[in-house]
């Protein structure tokens, strides 16, 4: 008999304690960040969308090899005058439909001090069609003055 009432007491106590917890949180400030109005700054190592710097790229193909999903493709620039490959890209393409945002390409990139392919802090990006996901950087049509690159040491692997 005593046990019966004891159980009732314990059960009601536990239930009321639960209500006290939710009741307490009712008056605590919310932690919601109201996204389009308020934005958090991404941390330093944030892996946002990839950006590519076509000027510094040496077309070394390391990022192409590093990519786990083979979403990067590039074509080295061949000087029409000499028919020689020089350490510049003709075009560079990333298929963001496949990109894993894993940073392996950035880590493989040998250019210094700033990697020519790297993650930015930008994360607001949307595409409507699959074809838009292929982002292509093309070499500027202006001719390259120097035949032999001086500033880059690495050749295509």
């Amino acid at each position: 008999m005593i046990n019966y009432f004891k159980t009732i007491y314990q059960v009601s106590k536990a239930l009321l304690q639960g209500m006290a917890v939710t009741g307490r949180w009712l008056f605590q400030p919310a932690i919601t960040v109201q996204y389009p109005d308020e934005k958090l700054t991404p941390p330093e190592r944030f892996r946002g969308t990839l950006v590519f710097d076509k000027e510094t790229c040496t077309a070394c193909n390391l990022c192409v090899k590093a990519c786990p999903t083979a979403c990067i493709s590039l074509e080295p620039y061949v000087d029409p005058a000499t028919q020689k490959r020089i350490a510049k890209v003709n075009w560079y393409q990333i298929d963001f439909g496949k990109c894993n945002y894993c940073r392996l390409c950035e880590e493989a990139c040998p250019t210094k001090p700033i990697k020519s392919v790297r993650h930015s802090h930008d994360y607001e990006w949307s595409m409507k069609e699959r074809s838009e996901m292929f982002v292509k950087w093309k070499r500027d049509p202006s001719p390259v003055i120097a035949d032999t690159p001086k500033d880059t040491g690495t050749k295509a692997a």
Partner: peptide
């Protein structure tokens, strides 16, 4: 999830991603 979010923030700082850390 409120608490997990804080852990993910820590991970984001250390690795740059919230779920697929690598």
């Amino acid at each position: 999830f409120r608490e997990r979010e804080k852990i993910l923030d820590l991970f984001e700082e250390v690795s740059g991603a919230r779920m697929t850390y690598n």
